[in-house]
């Protein structure tokens, strides 16, 4: 920047060219010296990762990818729910604190109530969350069949699926949640500069 400004001002082109060449030569010398003294460049990665299992999975996606094989219906879900969930969330998911039902039509009010039924955009999220984080205090104690069943029951309590539904890895992602269209990326959502 500065050297080209000087060039314009002085109009002595030959001298400028010589100076530029000298600068390039000096910086080349410098970097040659640096690489000779640095045995391991700071960006050199030791590559110590070992191959991961081919079927490794960590999460259930909105299109159903990541769901394990299995199935469960509303009826058996009701039994499991009564045994493992009702104490904290209420027998019908109504208990204040962390309610699992209610709040439909309240999102644009002065007292919005966010629940699975009123707020959650994807049914797959329910499976993903229950299987990793619930029942609180005995996390990861439910089998895939039990998680499908209890997911079905919570969706049934919210009047999203009928009582005779059986959920499995094929049909869970097709369940349309009431607030499916309620979300959009934040206005300032953008890559870092």
């Amino acid at each position: 920047m500065r050297s080209s400004d000087t060039c314009q001002k002085n109009q002595r082109k030959t001298r400028c060219l010589l100076l530029t060449l000298l600068a390039i030569f000096l910086s080349a010398l410098q970097s040659a010296g640096a690489s000779a003294e640095t045995p391991l460049g700071s960006h050199q990665i030791p590559a110590l990762g070992v191959a991961a299992p081919a079927n490794y999975e960590s999460v259930v996606m909105p299109d159903g990818k990541g769901l394990p094989k299995g199935s469960g219906d509303v009826d058996s879900g009701a039994t499991i729910y009564a045994r493992t969930c009702a104490s904290c969330h209420g027998s019908k998911g109504e208990k204040a604190g962390v309610p699992l039902v209610g709040g439909r039509g309240t999102l644009d009010s002065k007292n919005p109530i966010k629940t699975v039924g009123s707020y959650w955009p994807f049914a797959t999220t329910l499976y993903d969350y229950i299987t990793r984080a619930m029942p609180y205090g005995q996390e990861k104690s439910l089998t895939p069949n039990e998680v499908y069943a209890v997911t079905a029951y919570v969706l049934y309590l919210n009047e999203i699926i009928p009582e005779n539904t059986t959920l499995n890895q094929e049909n869970l992602a097709a369940v349309v949640m009431p607030n499916r269209r309620g979300f959009r990326p934040a206005k300032d959502f953008q890559p870092f500069r």
């Binding site: 999102l107 699975v116 707020y119 959650w120 959009r184």
Partner: peptide
């Protein structure tokens, strides 16, 4: 989705 989203007064939410 359930948490860490910003519900706006019109009932829609920013993610």
């Amino acid at each position: 989705t359930s948490k860490y989203t910003d519900l706006l007064a019109d009932g829609t939410a920013q993610q």
